[in-house]
Design a protein around this nucleic acid. Structure first.
Lengths: 228, 228
DNA sequence: TATCTGGATTTTGTATCCAATTTAGGATAG
DNA sequence: CTATCCTAAATTGGATACAAAATCCAGATA
């Protein structure tokens, strides 16, 4: 039915839908017809519904009672709202992670930066960059040892994830981000927790500013390809 | 079947389970049997399952695959984790709310404080106090006009809500909290946004400290009454 | 021609039923 | 008497079936 060997249908549905939304393949506002998705995944509507319910509390889709589920769409105020939370939480996670990090953690973070360097230089597809970018930040925060803090950060990141793609065309943005990643890794290794916190905060703030600027300029042009 | 006139069975199940967990009637670690809950609410297992899935992403229950759902339990590190996030987010919400508040908002907040005063003085049941306490904070943050920030705060509050009951017996804690509420309302009215932010942060921090202290002292004695 | 209305169709929400997996208890052997 | 294995009950996960609500479209009417 899907690559769901041994995992539950609900997990498969959740993963599939989440990726379709995060990648922007399902555009904001898109209606999510249960029957159609069930057919496409070769499962019944039930696991689809359960996955949709989970995605609704995660903020990726919205439920209009008796109307169905729709891909969540954010206005500019909501984007600022979410990025500001990310800035606060990631600053704290960066601070704690730096205080508690070991040499192995610093090595792992450096490896992530190196991988990102390669991708940015090669200028391959954005999906790969986005994936490594997430891995870098998750690895950076891993040593903070705060399960719930990391979970909240991940949820907030997911909520704005489809939008990040808008910055993909801006070559300068990627290079700016990469400079900040290198700086973060450096101060992380050296244990400058305050500096890592501040850089994490600024990293979010810059991204938010660039994103909102581009959105205001270009209006609503993020019409990605429809479901299929 | 329940007081679910006109609302969906799933919503009713979610509300019922949520309240059972938040009030501590269902103790941490309690297994949640779908069949039994369905019988008790007079509905089928399906809306129960969907409600449980939502509660799982909200962090109130945990899902062990093929084993069922269990009321989430938090260790002391996780409690600190969550209260620290609350402190950050509520400080920010308090700051923004104070900047944007109107006279009507200040009046509403004052009314909440008055209601709380009455309950603390009368020393009626804790449930009523807890309910008004939540209303006070939600009203205080309402004018911040940040949908997602308020939603995150609410989710984090819910996650630690069953524990707050532990402090109910401490008469001093309630009075201390009430002093802070009055101070918050005063500075809110006067537009001292920095002071409101700081007080919100401290309000969380004090509560967390008192809670953890009591937990460390008393060990694990929060065995509330079982399901029924 | 535009608008309102009424039924047909689609889609959601729920109930019942079935399969697969886990857990518990008992019987048997060491 | 204890440990292990096997069977049976309980419980979850999923599929199909059905009812209620919402949408859509055609036709009638002003």
């Amino acid at each position: 039915m899907l690559g769901d060997h041994l995992v539950s249908a609900q997990q498969a549905a959740h993963k599939w839908l989440r990726e379709m939304i995060l990648s922007g393949e399902l555009p904001a506002g898109q209606a999510l017809r249960q029957e159609e998705m069930a057919r496409r995944l070769g499962i019944s509507r039930l696991p689809i519904r359960e996955a949709l319910n989970r995605l609704a509390t995660e903020g990726l889709v919205e439920l209009k009672p008796r109307r169905g589920f729709y891909v969540a769409s954010l206005n500019i105020d909501e984007i600022e709202d979410i990025f500001e939370m990310r800035a606060m939480l990631e600053a704290r996670a960066g601070h704690l992670a730096t205080e508690r990090m070991t040499a192995a953690d610093a090595d792992a973070v450096d490896r992530c930066v190196a991988e990102l360097d390669a991708v940015v230089a090669a200028s391959t597809n954005f999906d790969h960059y986005a994936q490594l970018n997430i891995r870098f930040h998750e690895r950076l925060f891993e040593s903070c040892a705060r399960k719930h803090l990391r979970r909240q950060i991940a949820m907030l990141r997911d909520a704005v994830s489809p939008l990040i793609r808008i910055l993909a065309s801006e070559k300068g943005e990627l290079q700016r981000a990469q400079r900040e990643h290198r700086l973060l890794a450096k101060h992380f290794r050296e244990g400058h927790s305050e500096r890592v916190a501040e850089l994490s905060r600024e990293h979010c703030a810059y991204t938010a500013r660039a994103l909102i600027q581009k959105l205001r300029r270009g209006g609503v042009e993020e019409k990605a390809a429809a479901a299929s």
